[in-house]
Amino acid sequence: MSEWSITKLGDVLEITNGYAFKSVNFRSEPEAGCLPVLKIKNVANGDVHINDVQYHHFEEKLSKYTAQKGDILISLTGNHPHAETQVVGAVSKLKMDIRAFVNQRVAKIDTKPNLADKDYIYFALKEEGLSKYLASQSSGSANQANISKADIEDLDIALPPLPEQKTIASVLSSLDDKIDLLHRQNKTLEAMAETLFRQWFIEEAKEDWDVSPLGDVVKIAYGKNLPTSRLLDSGYPVFGGNGQIGFYDRFLYSEPQVLVSCRGEASGKVNISLPNSFITNNSLILERKENGISFEYLKFYALAYDFGLHISGSAQPQITIDGLFNAEFRWPPLGLVESFTEVVRPLEDKRLTNYIQIQTLENLRDMLLPKLMSGEVRVQYQTEDVA
């Protein structure tokens, strides 16, 4: 590793803080000449997404605050590591072929020419040791931690020669690309099943179908308390109110379950757990009974139902078992449920197979990442010709 050098990120990066847009100028819907505005919530989970975004009219003077496909973004404000939601110092890549504004408290990272490879920097910043160190430098409270451009620039990084950087990034990117492909396949499979459910059970629903309280159809149960401090880096998946939040050394349910978030801002959100999962008490579990209602039907019924109708409490929104008991459940003919299940179950099985492959690839990537970034595992690379 004699050819590797230790350098400050500020020596090889250009970091641009986002712009402090005025909220009064945001549009809630896309309009001609407008770009989506990426906030912390859009960049804090690994890949940039444009769910629940606002839009702002493009002006040439704001062009330096835009990002496009391949750009790296980092959240400058958020919670400390192991929080369920936004995490300070989280690094994401914009993988969609769009142009977007970068909002205040998000920064865009570019590399200086011929000094560092952008994708290598992306993976280096995602490496657990570096990301945790960066988050540890944050100021503020646990609920509102902050890092600055200077904090990022002052971070030491091990840099191999540029050709080796590119080869390392290529290895890790190929794994990410396969993972992304499987995620897209799963979204397509989910959309197919949702479309079929909507057609059969919403658009073509009959007025004479019976209606029952949800509590008569399923057993509604709370998950178990599990402090976030006891979460592990591996083991059985743990589901909180916002989805999977980590791992634990035991599980509560061997089969996937339909979950309804029951505490805080996420109340009413539906999540679907995985086989052999632990469910925290931030969710209510809709346990099936022997009544002909399949898991597949219950899942898509729950995804289509507005559980927000059963939220109580103003200072602390919540959904209780009693409050959810009388939620409406429509009984279609069981033969129609069986036909739906017959079509959808292979799609669900394929989604699960894809998920298992995603987990395998993610584990491989996460195992390789620190080894490649430290030089413990080396890659063969071709030295670039110098003209």
Rank of each mutant, 00 (worst) to 15 (best):
S148A: 04
E164H: 09
A302N: 08
D210W: 09
T188S: 15
E29Q: 13
S277E: 02
L336A: 08
N242Q: 09
F300P: 04
T77L: 12
S28G: 04
E31H: 10
E290Q: 10
L172I: 05
K289I: 05
F295G: 02
K69W: 03
V343I: 12
V270Q: 08
A158R: 10
V211Q: 11
Y133N: 10
K126P: 01
L352H: 11
L182A: 09
P163M: 12
R378I: 01
Y381H: 12
K118N: 10
D249W: 03
D52K: 07
V12Y: 01
N281R: 07
K187D: 14
I179A: 03
A387S: 14
T228D: 03
F325P: 09
T195Q: 14
Y297Q: 04
Q199I: 07
I358D: 02
L347H: 14
G223K: 11
S261N: 07
A20R: 06
S174R: 12
L324S: 10
E265L: 14
P36N: 04
L9V: 01
I358F: 00
Y55N: 02
D177G: 02
T280F: 11
L94F: 07
N354K: 02
E338L: 08
K118P: 09
D306V: 02
D117K: 00
D180L: 12
L214R: 05
S212V: 15
A169G: 12
A100N: 08
Q199W: 00
T353N: 08
L125V: 04
G223T: 10
L372M: 01
F58S: 01
G246V: 05
D71N: 09
G78Q: 07
R198P: 00
A116P: 05
T16K: 14
E29L: 10
D306R: 13
E342I: 00
I157L: 10
G313T: 03
P370W: 03
S2V: 06
V217E: 07
K41N: 13
P370S: 03
G78I: 06
L125K: 03
K269S: 08
R351N: 00
L13V: 13
F21V: 07
A67G: 01
A142E: 11
T383S: 14
L175Y: 12
V87K: 13
T353A: 15
I179W: 07
K126N: 13
S254D: 14
V106H: 11
D322G: 15
P213T: 06
K69H: 05
Y301D: 07
Y65S: 12
G292L: 06
G235A: 02
A191M: 11
E348P: 00
V379R: 09
S28H: 13
G313L: 05
M367W: 01
V37L: 13
Y297A: 01
D233T: 07
L368S: 04
D208A: 03
D176R: 07
